[in-house]
């Protein structure tokens, strides 16, 4: 790129800057995202009610339902992001440097109120990505509801979204598992993500209350 191409294609900043991203049409009561998709904001009580309703209807299977919803949504969200970010940066999302794509995902996640997500690629050569979420809205709602997590991580909706986003991006079947959760009094919500076969043993390790480090070691082939 040189001066003339900079003039033709000015470098674009953060697509998800809050001041530009959400458009309010107060007359019609409609919120739209920058690319035109309709949005809806909901308070924490909604999530508390959703969790309570799902548990009533589905019993122990409620996390699976949440995961599937997240996965479906994550895939569609990534489709839209590919279109919107492709237009904004004049480059396909999959062609952007990984750090650039992750930064856009981080900002999108924060802007929608899901907390601050960060990605750790240290074990990517072992086929595993570690993900950290601060301020999970789901964990906060769960704790506000006064429910007992029964020793299980509760942010299955977030696991599903991550799986959906990365499955769409990589064209592979990516699965995410939450391995620590603030709802069970741990310091952060942490996730591991990888191809289905690679992380298949993780739920069993979670049930046995393996630590994040132990799970990480096992996935790297040690332990």
């Amino acid at each position: 790129m040189n001066g003339s191409s900079l003039a033709a294609h000015p470098p674009a900043g953060n697509f998800f800057a809050a001041t530009d991203y959400i458009k309010w049409d107060m007359g019609r009561g409609v919120l739209r995202a920058r690319g035109g998709a309709r949005l809806m904001a909901f308070p924490q009580e909604f999530t508390v009610g959703l969790l309570a309703g799902l548990e009533d209807e589905c019993g122990e299977a409620w996390p699976i339902v949440m995961y599937r919803c997240g996965e479906w949504w994550g895939k569609r969200h990534m489709e839209r992001m590919e279109k919107d970010l492709g237009a904004h940066y004049r480059e396909e999302l999959r062609d952007l440097p990984t750090a650039h794509a992750h930064s856009s995902l981080t900002e999108a996640w924060a802007l929608h109120g899901w907390g601050r997500i960060s990605f750790d690629m240290a074990d990517i050569e072992h086929g595993v990505m570690h993900v950290h979420v601060d301020g999970s809205q789901i964990a906060a709602a769960f704790m506000a509801s006064g429910k007992d997590p029964k020793g299980k991580p509760v942010c299955s909706l977030l696991s599903g979204i991550m799986a959906g986003l990365f499955s769409h991006m990589t064209k592979a079947e990516i699965v995410a598992h939450e391995v620590s959760c603030v709802a069970r009094k741990e310091d952060a919500c942490r996730f591991v993500m990888g191809q289905k076969e690679k992380v298949a043993g993780v739920p069993d390790m979670i049930r046995k209350r393996a630590t994040v480090e132990e799970i990480g070691q096992k996935l790297k082939g040690g332990g």
Partner: peptide, 19 residues
């Protein structure tokens, strides 16, 4: 100043840290 932080700096920081 928030315009600069929000539209570029927080986002660019994540990229530069990863690099």
């Amino acid at each position: 100043p928030e315009l600069l932080r929000e539209k570029v700096l927080y986002w660019l920081r994540t990229i530069l840290m990863a690099m």
